[in-house]
């Protein structure tokens, strides 16, 4: 499984309140949530993002609330993969559970810049910055998590 797209880059401690502000949590509609994704730190994100694009953050990405609306909004906006130096744990779990691939790689998170073209191979954990030619290696998913992602999320894996 691969992802390939243009990078949207953010810094440390991107919290779930900026990924999807609580004022929009009076709906669980995926498209409506996606229409406000990242609005409080990057109001142009929604108009810029294209299907397949990649989001890169630095330390503690997704900290704060447990709202699954955050990875849902990111996934529904078209993002195919999130790379960060570290993820907050509930966001990490939620992303796996809904089938949004996410990778921890501090070096890639630091060096990859907004607008770079990036390719990700989930099986090997290899991240290639096509723009700069540099490659990075993230820890690939453990088998247990691969099964959930390959099934298309936790509930589908439970039903199998």
């Amino acid at each position: 499984m691969n992802a390939h797209g243009t990078v949207h880059k953010y810094g440390d401690n991107v919290d779930t309140d900026v990924i999807i502000p609580a004022r929009y949590l009076n709906t669980a509609d995926h498209k409506e949530l996606a229409s406000h994704c990242m609005e409080d730190i990057d109001k142009d994100f929604v108009s810029k993002v294209k299907a397949g694009d990649i989001m890169v953050g630095e330390a503690n990405f997704g900290c704060g609330s447990s709202r699954e609306h955050a990875p849902i909004a990111i996934k529904e906006s078209g993002i195919s993969c999130v790379i960060a130096a570290t993820f907050a744990r509930i966001f990490y779990r939620n992303s796996i559970n809904i089938g949004l691939p996410i990778l921890e790689c501090p070096e890639a998170a630091k060096e990859i810049k907004a607008g770079d073209e990036v390719d990700v191979d989930f099986d090997s954990g290899k991240i290639t910055d096509v723009t700069t030619g540099k490659t990075y290696t993230a820890e690939p998913f453990p088998e247990f998590i691969k099964e959930i992602i390959n099934a298309g999320g936790l509930l589908k894996s439970l039903r199998q």
Binding site: S66, E68, N94, N97, I98, L155
Partner: peptide
């Protein structure tokens, strides 16, 4: 704390 999918699986 977990997300809603964990909650759904937990309820079931």
């Amino acid at each position: 704390g977990v997300g809603s999918t964990d909650m759904a699986a937990g309820m079931a």
